[in-house]
């Protein structure tokens, strides 16, 4: 059942590798251009409406130019970048979901197994992470329970939430799909959720990068480019 647990193995599928790097580029563009758009009105509200005379739950200074695309404030260019990247990102997620259903990536690698969900197992996994004890040998060839939970959370909750709240802000989509506004409780609520979800994704990204750096960046990055992964030797 387990493939050989020494030497170099094929770790990541082509679909996963393609989607990963496409996302790296698109999410970078979407986040930085999104901050540029946010700078046009750096206030967030809950509900259907919200403008300068209404109570904001968050009011920020403009994000600095080194974080925004373009660096020099241009709402029009930020929108062009954002609205060009957004459909590519959304359809890529859709194709990835379908492809991963077809090649059984979701069922085989991402879905929780009964053993994953045993409280003792989850607690053990949390302790291992806290001690930065990364899996070795055969255990390094599949996702651990915290990894599964974060990947499932991102792919099936966070990314769809970002796409749907983004669509909800479009007045044309409000006419086409009125249920979207109702789902999020108003356009300004959707804008707030879009902002929160974007920063949740940044938090995921930072932890993700940290884990890659700690687990062996060369081996990890190579496995995401070529698919080939050197299995960490079993601890004695």
């Amino acid at each position: 059942m387990t493939p050989k647990a020494t030497g170099t193995v094929r770790r990541h599928r082509l679909s996963t590798r393609l989607w990963h790097w496409l996302n790296a580029a698109l999410l970078y563009i979407l986040f930085t251009s999104g901050l540029g758009i946010f700078n046009a009105h750096p206030r967030l509200y809950w509900g259907q409406y919200g403008a300068n005379f209404d109570a904001a739950w968050l009011e920020l200074d403009r994000f600095p130019g080194w974080l925004t695309l373009p660096a020099l404030y241009s709402l029009a260019m930020s929108r062009h970048w954002h609205l060009a990247a957004a459909p590519l990102f959304a359809f890529a997620l859709l194709f990835y979901m379908l492809w991963s259903l077809a090649n059984r990536h979701i069922v085989c690698d991402l879905a929780f197994r009964r053993a994953d969900l045993a409280p003792r197992h989850i607690w053990q996994d949390i302790k291992d992470h806290a001690r930065l004890r990364f899996p070795t040998g055969a255990a390094a060839l599949h996702y651990n329970v915290l990894q599964k939970a974060s990947y499932i959370g991102v792919i099936f909750l966070l990314l769809p939430l970002l796409i749907l709240t983004g669509l909800t802000m479009a007045p044309g989509m409000n006419a086409a799909w009125p249920w979207l506004v109702d789902l999020f409780g108003g356009r300004q609520s959707a804008r707030s959720l879009h902002f929160i979800a974007a920063f949740a994704l940044v938090a995921f990204f930072l932890v993700h990068i940290l884990m890659v750096l700690l687990a062996g960046p060369v081996n990890e990055v190579r496995s995401m480019i070529t698919g080939r992964y050197r299995v960490p030797e079993e601890r004695p």
Binding site: I37, H41, Q48, Y49, N52, L75, R79, N174, R187
Partner: peptide
């Protein structure tokens, strides 16, 4: 109706 400014705010 809701007036949506390109800047991000809305007024009804």
């Amino acid at each position: 109706t809701r007036h949506d400014c390109v800047e991000g705010w809305s007024a009804i």
